[in-house]
Design a protein around this nucleic acid. Sequence first.
DNA 1: GTCTATATCATGATAGAC
DNA 2: GTCTATCATGATATAGAC
Lengths: 194, 194
Amino acid sequence: MTTEDRILDACESLIQERGYFGFSFADVAGEVGIRKASIYYYFPAKAELGKKVVNRYRNRMRVVCEDWFEAENLDVGEAFKAFMEPIVTLGRKPGAACLCGVLGGEFQSLPKIVRDEVSEFFEEHQRTLALLFENGRNDGVFRFDGDPKALAKVAFSMIEGSFLIKRTQNDLSVFDDAVANLDAMIGTSQPRPL
Amino acid sequence: MTTEDRILDACESLIQERGYFGFSFADVAGEVGIRKASIYYYFPAKAELGKKVVNRYRNRMRVVCEDWFEAENLDVGEAFKAFMEPIVTLGRKPGAACLCGVLGGEFQSLPKIVRDEVSEFFEEHQRTLALLFENGRNDGVFRFDGDPKALAKVAFSMIEGSFLIKRTQNDLSVFDDAVANLDAMIGTSQPRPL
DNA sequence: GTCTATATCATGATAGAC
DNA sequence: GTCTATCATGATATAGAC
């Protein structure tokens, strides 16, 4: 792995743990095993480093959905599973939280280039989720009433909130219950009589 | 208003906006109109100030429920409305978020005395909500299936998540949709045939 | 590419005058 | 109670040697 990637990895886990203002170049350097100054060879400023970290996270969380958009013959249920996969991985890791959920708390004072990446993360995740819900209902995979967009907002809020709370309570069941409830909301866990 | 209260107010709105590591004594002093050093007359350290701010927030958000616990003849529907009142006030203010939702992002690196207050906030809110749900269902005010405790976790996650996301999206509908969905979850908005 | 050394600034905190 | 002055520390960032 390149030094740049190791810097990004260290920075990502540090932000996830402490937030943007809670980590320093000294922390990153210490974790990677280089000196503070060396970081500037790869990133000209902290904001640029932060932006890159969020951008990379965004792409990683999104990739499965891109695939689905391109291969339209894919089953919606499978696409939804793929969408949830990285979320569940994060949710079942005790100390972990969503990078953008954490940054959302500091949102108002983040550097603009970081803030924009965070906004984009939430926007595109909600857009994707709404599209999955809408198509899934049309295909008979999901069952729910009302606007898919509104449901997407609510579902994603629930996931993000459960990330934060499960960590403060050291209780993974908060996340599990959220996922179970999401399944119930889209009708994939509690089949009702037709 | 006393100087101490003005310090606490300034600190609360600063944390809500920027997080614990995003505000400084200089910020507080500037907002209150005193000098940095004067803050130490009231609070011996930043952590003590932070703890007091969260403690005060916690008490303010809780008071309505304490009342209900003591006066047991109160209607559960009314108690739930009282519980939601400060939440809705916060949710409908564009730049606002839950103080503890924000601090949840920085949770791992908060001073212990602050962290403990944040944990307690989530704990007691979930406990109260679970009790409201359970009593409300027994009284026929709410209708839902499953464990009231699990529902309380999910409901509160949804609210907290919507606080964070509505701010990053500058879109109050995220919060409104969450509240509407909560109503649907406890059966107060979408009456179904018996 | 990585380092040492340093500049510059902001931070939390303290001492002591008034 | 509030101030000025100051300290020690740690932050981001830069210059330049190797």
